[in-house]
Design a protein around this nucleic acid. Structure first.
Lengths: 206, 206
DNA sequence: TTCCATATAGAAACAGTGTTTCTATAACTC
DNA sequence: GAGTTATAGAAACACTGTTTCTATATGGAA
């Protein structure tokens, strides 16, 4: 089984080529922002015709989709490097901090994934799944909080979505220019995190 | 002072023409979404050359900016039609509901103002001011809550921003395709509202 | 009024986008 | 080696925002 057929070899080469193109696009994305991710610019960077990108990805959304999943991987890695704390409260706070850091250190990915800059692009099943996977630590900590009786809500995913929305809301208002500066934004973000922890990490028997 | 100079008359005519063009663009926005708001499409609807739009608005951002302010007026009107409740808690809840309704009934405006669909466009001072004015009821209810000693935070604007971010986060995740359906989204939205009220409308002496 | 200067609008063009078509060449099959 | 098929390259198409060019109309002064 070590010998690959030509067809397999060709397909494998296509996959590796796709990955190279995605990486080139990712560099464009991170260095020059989402609007620099253009078929022609990617083709120029790869020193190839635009046609081969269309042959491999079908259309631009096909490329964006892979960038989206790539961004999910980066986010997942960020979360994985957060050391698990004893107290759930501290762990949740650290995860929120990691999410903030991701939006700061990978603004290109953040805008592509969650910023709505590609009005046309909507994540489909696979991208949604990658997102959920990236948020796994959040889901885990909320699941534990539910099991510990801290949260009445049964579905951890719904709780995570409420938390996610709060954090994303602050970041996105800033990216959209609705909050004047970064310091103010971070203060609002921290306030949101504190509110969320008060809401979800305190015993509700009070 | 009733007689206008020609210069004034001309300028007035220009202002009225600008308003007509903004209204045409607004119809395009609401009927076909943000990506349909195109200089050429607006010019076609107005049956005029694209040049006169550039003469009046300088560039596309000039037109978008007026649409933004127009959207702020629509939002402000929505809030004004919310009858003030005795209990601050109920009033805040009603305002949150009005914000949700605005996003549903004026999705085009919402995306233009807060959706980040025009990657380039960022609101400047005047637009920011119009936004703050639109959110005046929110600021008022929070100010009263601070005066009543329900909230420790001193700056009502910052509190409103945290609330706004939570609500916007849910709506924007839905518009971006990260929440599958509208019913789920509304449930998350209501959960966020409940959390916010528990956080800001209950005496913190507990 | 007549003449000139200026302002303005219309059409076309430019530079950029996503995407498709056409064609020549390369690759694979027999 | 011949013939079919796949593929890549260049060019073209249909859009976008924006600018330029030119003819016209409009303004003010003699």
């Amino acid at each position: 089984m070590e010998i690959k057929t030509y067809s397999e070899s060709k397909q494998q080469h296509a996959e590796s080529l796709k990955q190279t193109i995605v990486e080139a696009a990712a560099i464009l994305l991170q260095e020059q922002g989402p609007e620099a991710v253009t078929i022609r610019k990617v083709a120029e960077k790869m020193e190839c015709s635009t046609k081969i990108i269309y042959n491999l990805f079908n259309n631009k959304d096909g490329l964006i989709k892979l960038l989206y999943v790539e961004g999910c991987n980066v986010l997942a890695t960020s979360f994985q490097s957060v050391s698990k704390q004893e107290k759930l409260e501290n762990y949740l706070r650290a995860l929120c901090e990691a999410y903030w850091d991701f939006s700061r250190n990978n603004t290109g990915y953040y805008q592509l994934m969650f910023g709505g800059v590609f009005g046309e692009f909507k994540p489909e099943e696979e991208s949604i799944h990658a997102t959920t996977t990236a948020l796994q630590q959040f889901i885990q900590v909320i699941t534990e909080a539910i099991e510990a009786g801290l949260i009445m809500e049964k579905d951890p995913v719904q709780v995570v979505r409420v938390i996610w929305a709060s954090l994303h809301g602050v970041i996105h208002l800033y990216l959209g220019g609705h909050i004047e500066n970064l310091e103010t934004t971070k203060a609002l973000y921290d306030k949101s995190v504190t509110n969320l922890i008060r809401t979800y990490m305190r015993s509700s028997t009070c």
